[in-house]
Design a protein around this nucleic acid. Structure first.
Length: 101
DNA sequence: ACCTTGACCTTGG
DNA sequence: CCCAAGGCCAAGG
């Protein structure tokens, strides 16, 4: 992916308010609407390589599952900012937390 | 150019 | 809830 696409994704993630979240697919739709390219998998690739500088814990799968590897840190952040979670606490409740710019 | 690999998504069993 | 199948876009070997 090129820098323009990476920038678009990262700047969008930065705008997600605390306590809310966006799915990879949703991000792909918003960004793709302007740049005419990309998709959920590409967004995932961007976050994997360049997501370190943004609130990556607010980006989850469509079903609210947290990204692999950093569940521990993610849970702490989410709990701290009061993100709506499912009863078992393992996933984000996307019906309530979903956010669109 | 061909094939494999992903922080994906939806549907169906 | 878990798994498999198809569809998806781009990168890397």
């Amino acid at each position: 992916m090129d820098d323009e696409y990476v920038e678009a994704v990262l700047s969008l993630v930065e705008r997600i308010p605390p306590g809310r979240a966006m799915a990879y697919g949703a991000i792909a739709e918003v960004v793709g609407a302007e740049l005419e390219r990309g998709g959920p998998r590409l967004v995932g690739a961007v976050m994997a390589s360049f997501g370190g500088g943004v609130p990556w814990w607010r980006v989850v799968t469509a079903s609210g599952r947290l990204p692999p590897g950093n569940e521990v840190a993610a849970r702490r952040e989410l709990a701290a900012e009061g993100t709506p979670l499912t009863s078992d606490g393992s996933r984000i409740d996307m019906r309530r937390a979903a956010w669109l710019p």
